[in-house]
Computed example of a mutant assay.
Amino acid sequence: MNSSSELVCTFVAKNKLNHKRIINFFSKIQNTNDYKILSNKALDLYCDDIGKKKRDRLRNFCFKNKIDICIQLAKWRKKKIFLADMDATMIKDETLDNLVKFAGIKVDIDKLSKLAMDGKISLRDTLKFRVSYLKGKSANLIKQVINKIRFNEGSKVLLKTLNKNGYHTSLVTGGFQPISTYVGKFLGFKKVISNRFVIKNNKFTGKYIPITGKQNSKLVYLNEICKQKKLNKFKDTICVGDGANDLGMLQNSGLGIGYYPHSIVKKTVDNNIQFTDLKTILFYLGFTEKEFSK
């Protein structure tokens, strides 16, 4: 396992993985150099480079069998920085949409968000529209949203394990403080980067302060944190997200992962999680289940 071009292919199932079946199928496509069982749900196979047709065949097999797969260079597998989206990634909810719903505003907010996450309309414009709907409403609605937050399975174990192993963990979200602050603190993120509502007299003004004044703010932060820590973003970082606004950081990291991704991410990013939970990220990084911090 010393070749600079050697790949590690990680297979993860929701329940029990048939390791023998995976090894047998894989051997028909590519000679394997070695393997490692990460748990009864996960397996690593090491091999030399795989051509596009063989990769497609392998990914199609996994999709049909509801197995998540990650293919990456073995030598750069270990990372140092973890960046994660919040809404529909670390948590199940779209928190701004929930705010609008709790405010009793009659608008098809889910459709608006889906179009933005699929990259069909500008996210910046949809944020502006959605925040404007809240004008004059009580900021106490934020507490209702926080109380209803549902964390995605594996989120706590993921962060606890990464933090214990020295990763710099950042929650980078188009969501808003203090919701993002609560999520970040609960899960243990070392840093939270998010938008901020402008509130006066405990009421929403309909305006907000963005993460940065620039487009592709998540990628901007990725560049900044790597420069600050003198790290290579294409070797030392892992990012996860689900929508169009995550593409910049997903495509410019060492390992970009789409988590139950929208169509634009699924088409653009190779390594996705579509059947399992957030602990799969730990398997992708080479941790065995025994190494998880619970």
Results as ranks from 00 to 15, higher is better:
S3H: 04
S4D: 14
E6P: 01
C9D: 10
V12N: 08
K16R: 09
H19V: 05
K20C: 06
R21D: 12
I22E: 06
F26A: 03
I29A: 00
I29T: 00
Q30K: 11
T32V: 11
D34T: 04
K36T: 10
L43Q: 12
D44V: 09
D44R: 11
I50K: 02
R59K: 10
R59G: 01
N60P: 03
F61Q: 07
C62F: 13
I69D: 08
K75E: 10
K79D: 04
F82K: 13
M86W: 01
D87C: 08
L96H: 01
L96C: 07
D97P: 00
L99M: 03
V100Q: 03
V100H: 00
G104C: 02
D110C: 02
L115C: 03
D118P: 02
K120E: 09
R124E: 12
L127D: 01
L127C: 07
R130M: 02
V131M: 00
Y133M: 05
L134E: 02
G136C: 01
I142Q: 07
V145F: 01
I146S: 05
K148L: 06
K148N: 15
N152V: 11
L158A: 13
K160H: 13
K160R: 15
N163T: 11
N163Q: 14
N163S: 12
N163W: 12
N165H: 15
T169V: 10
S170C: 12
S170K: 06
G174T: 03
G175P: 00
I179S: 03
T181Y: 05
G188L: 07
G188D: 10
S194Y: 04
V198E: 11
G206Q: 02
K207R: 14
N216R: 15
S217V: 09
S217F: 14
Y221N: 08
K227A: 15
K229G: 09
K230F: 12
N232Y: 11
K233W: 07
K233M: 13
D236E: 13
A244F: 11
N245M: 09
L247N: 10
G248N: 06
N252E: 11
L255R: 10
P261S: 06
H262S: 07
V265I: 10
T268N: 11
V269W: 07
N271D: 13
I273A: 12
T280N: 15
G286S: 14
T288G: 12
K290M: 12
K290E: 14
K290A: 14
S293I: 14
